[in-house]
Protein backbone atom coordinates (compact mmCIF):
# COMPACT_ATOMS: atom_id res chain seq x y z
CA UNK A 1 0.00 0.00 0.00
CA UNK A 2 1.05 3.62 -0.22
CA UNK A 3 2.84 4.96 2.82
CA UNK A 4 3.53 8.57 3.46
CA UNK A 5 6.71 9.18 5.43
CA UNK A 6 8.72 12.23 6.35
CA UNK A 7 12.38 11.81 5.55
CA UNK A 8 14.92 14.60 5.85
CA UNK A 9 12.15 17.18 6.00
CA UNK A 10 10.33 16.03 2.90
CA UNK A 11 7.19 13.93 2.77
CA UNK A 12 7.54 10.97 0.44
CA UNK A 13 4.85 8.60 -0.75
CA UNK A 14 6.06 5.08 -1.36
CA UNK A 15 4.05 2.14 -2.59
CA UNK A 16 5.51 -0.87 -0.80
CA UNK A 17 4.31 -3.72 1.40
CA UNK A 18 3.56 -2.78 4.99
CA UNK A 19 6.29 -5.01 6.34
CA UNK A 20 9.04 -3.41 4.27
CA UNK A 21 11.79 -2.31 6.65
CA UNK A 22 12.39 1.42 6.61
CA UNK A 23 15.97 0.67 5.56
CA UNK A 24 14.93 -0.67 2.16
CA UNK A 25 12.51 2.17 1.58
CA UNK A 26 15.32 4.64 2.23
CA UNK A 27 17.81 2.82 0.04
CA UNK A 28 15.76 1.33 -2.77
CA UNK A 29 12.82 3.74 -3.05
CA UNK A 30 14.34 7.05 -1.99
CA UNK A 31 17.93 6.45 -3.11
CA UNK A 32 19.36 7.40 0.27
CA UNK A 33 22.17 4.89 0.20
CA UNK A 34 24.31 6.40 2.94
CA UNK A 35 22.35 4.21 5.35
CA UNK A 36 23.78 0.71 5.05
CA UNK A 37 22.58 -2.85 5.32
CA UNK A 38 24.76 -5.07 7.48
CA UNK A 39 22.68 -7.72 9.23
CA UNK A 40 18.94 -7.05 9.00
CA UNK A 41 18.43 -8.01 12.64
CA UNK A 42 19.54 -4.91 14.59
CA UNK A 43 22.84 -6.48 15.57
CA UNK A 44 25.30 -4.27 13.68
CA UNK A 45 24.01 -0.69 13.61
CA UNK A 46 25.03 0.04 10.01
CA UNK A 47 21.45 1.08 9.25
CA UNK A 48 21.18 3.69 12.02
CA UNK A 49 18.96 6.71 11.28
CA UNK A 50 17.11 9.09 13.59
CA UNK A 51 13.42 8.89 14.32
CA UNK A 52 12.30 12.15 15.89
CA UNK A 53 15.94 12.74 16.69
CA UNK A 54 16.57 9.43 18.43
CA UNK A 55 18.77 6.68 16.96
CA UNK A 56 16.86 3.89 15.27
CA UNK A 57 17.91 0.70 13.48
CA UNK A 58 16.05 1.15 10.25
CA UNK A 59 16.38 -2.54 9.32
CA UNK A 60 14.06 -3.51 12.14
CA UNK A 61 11.21 -1.04 11.82
CA UNK A 62 8.56 -1.66 9.19
CA UNK A 63 7.57 1.35 7.14
CA UNK A 64 4.03 0.95 8.43
CA UNK A 65 5.25 1.82 11.94
CA UNK A 66 6.90 5.09 10.98
CA UNK A 67 3.67 7.07 11.07
CA UNK A 68 4.16 10.80 11.48
CA UNK A 69 7.67 10.48 12.87
CA UNK A 70 10.42 12.53 11.27
CA UNK A 71 13.23 10.38 9.89
CA UNK A 72 16.71 11.81 9.44
CA UNK A 73 19.45 10.03 7.50
CA UNK A 74 23.16 10.75 7.26
CA UNK A 75 22.55 12.69 4.06
CA UNK A 76 20.71 15.38 6.03
CA UNK A 77 22.94 15.70 9.07
CA UNK A 78 23.33 19.24 10.28
CA UNK A 79 24.30 21.01 13.44
CA UNK A 80 27.40 21.47 15.52
CA UNK A 81 27.53 17.93 16.87
CA UNK A 82 27.43 16.52 13.35
CA UNK A 83 30.11 18.90 12.18
CA UNK A 84 32.33 18.12 15.15
CA UNK A 85 31.94 14.37 14.80
CA UNK A 86 32.52 14.22 11.06
CA UNK A 87 35.51 16.54 11.31
CA UNK A 88 36.97 14.36 14.07
CA UNK A 89 36.33 11.25 11.96
CA UNK A 90 38.38 12.76 9.14
CA UNK A 91 41.08 14.12 11.44
CA UNK A 92 41.62 10.72 13.04
CA UNK A 93 41.26 8.84 9.76
CA UNK A 94 38.76 6.60 11.51
CA UNK A 95 37.34 4.71 8.52
CA UNK A 96 39.00 1.72 6.99
CA UNK A 97 36.57 -0.01 4.65
CA UNK A 98 34.09 2.64 5.72
CA UNK A 99 30.94 0.58 5.32
CA UNK A 100 29.82 0.76 8.96
CA UNK A 101 30.87 4.35 9.45
CA UNK A 102 27.56 6.00 8.54
CA UNK A 103 26.03 4.16 11.46
CA UNK A 104 28.97 4.87 13.74
CA UNK A 105 28.77 8.59 12.97
CA UNK A 106 25.00 8.63 13.58
CA UNK A 107 25.39 6.92 16.96
CA UNK A 108 28.30 9.14 18.00
CA UNK A 109 26.35 12.31 17.23
CA UNK A 110 23.37 11.02 19.18
CA UNK A 111 25.62 10.32 22.15
CA UNK A 112 27.15 13.79 22.11
CA UNK A 113 23.73 15.39 21.94
CA UNK A 114 22.84 13.66 25.20
CA UNK A 115 26.19 13.68 26.95
CA UNK A 116 28.45 16.61 26.23
CA UNK A 117 31.58 15.06 27.67
CA UNK A 118 31.21 11.30 27.53
CA UNK A 119 33.47 8.99 29.49
CA UNK A 120 34.93 5.83 27.98
CA UNK A 121 32.10 3.95 29.66
CA UNK A 122 29.50 6.26 28.08
CA UNK A 123 31.11 5.63 24.72
CA UNK A 124 31.09 1.87 25.25
CA UNK A 125 27.41 1.89 26.14
CA UNK A 126 26.33 4.09 23.26
CA UNK A 127 28.56 2.58 20.57
CA UNK A 128 28.49 -1.13 21.43
CA UNK A 129 25.55 -1.61 19.10
CA UNK A 130 27.63 -0.54 16.10
CA UNK A 131 29.84 -3.31 14.77
CA UNK A 132 32.96 -2.57 12.81
CA UNK A 133 34.58 -5.64 11.31
CA UNK A 134 37.74 -3.62 10.58
CA UNK A 135 37.65 -2.88 14.33
CA UNK A 136 38.36 0.83 14.04
CA UNK A 137 37.17 1.20 17.63
CA UNK A 138 40.36 2.75 18.98
CA UNK A 139 39.93 5.67 16.60
CA UNK A 140 36.17 5.89 17.05
CA UNK A 141 36.78 6.40 20.74
CA UNK A 142 39.52 8.96 20.15
CA UNK A 143 37.40 10.84 17.62
CA UNK A 144 34.41 11.04 19.96
CA UNK A 145 36.56 12.45 22.74
CA UNK A 146 38.04 14.90 20.26
CA UNK A 147 34.63 15.98 19.00
CA UNK A 148 33.54 16.51 22.60
CA UNK A 149 36.51 18.83 23.10
CA UNK A 150 35.56 20.74 19.96
CA UNK A 151 32.02 21.17 21.23
CA UNK A 152 33.33 22.44 24.53
CA UNK A 153 34.88 25.22 22.50
Amino acid sequence: MVHSINVNGTTHRVDVDDDTPLLWVLRDNLGLTGTKFGCGVAQCGACTVYMDGQPLRSCSLPVSAVGDARITTIEALAGKEAEAVQAAWVKHDVPQCGYCQSGQVMSAIALLKEIRKPTDRDIDLAMTGNLCRCTTYVRIRAAIHDAARTLEG
Binding site: Q54, L56, L61, A108, E114, L125, A126, M127, G129
Partner: peptide, 12 residues
Amino acid sequence: APGLACATCHGK
Protein backbone atom coordinates in the same frame (compact mmCIF):
# COMPACT_ATOMS: atom_id res chain seq x y z
CA ALA B 1 21.88 4.17 27.87
CA PRO B 2 22.17 7.54 26.11
CA GLY B 3 22.78 6.74 22.46
CA LEU B 4 21.54 3.17 22.75
CA ALA B 5 18.04 3.20 24.16
CA CYS B 6 15.86 0.10 24.01
CA ALA B 7 13.81 1.87 21.35
CA THR B 8 16.84 2.05 19.08
CA CYS B 9 16.08 -1.55 18.15
CA HIS B 10 12.75 -2.41 19.78
CA GLY B 11 9.66 -0.91 18.20
CA LYS B 12 6.11 -0.71 19.47
